[in-house]
Amino acid sequence: MARDRTPADLVGADPGPPFEITFDGRPVTALPGQSVAAALWGAGILAWRTTRNGGRPRGAFCGIGQCYDCLATVNGEPNRRACLVPARPGDAITTQEGHGHAGLAV
């Protein structure tokens, strides 16, 4: 019974028209009302940041804006909390490397 079910089935979701965002240049389908993190999870993507020192992959952890592990670069702007930022049509999400300000050489 439960196995083939999806979260959308569970709540009888009838979402508005899906739209496209990109993650490191690849197209990802998002639904209206989803956060950037939810859209990425929906596409099976769990990591969109690498750590400053170890270069290790990270993604959403606390899911409520407290842990800052889900920081992503959204349309060129680093350090956006992907679990809070709503996905918008055409958003370009890129993996944030370290503090996300490599261009400033700081």
């Binding site: 709540v11 859209a39 929906g42 899911g63």
Partner: peptide
């Protein structure tokens, strides 16, 4: 992921990790 985090992402975004 946090247990509460998984719950929050499911409740708000209808997604699973």
């Amino acid at each position: 992921v946090g247990a509460g985090g998984a719950q929050a992402m499911l409740k708000a975004g209808l997604v699973l990790p």
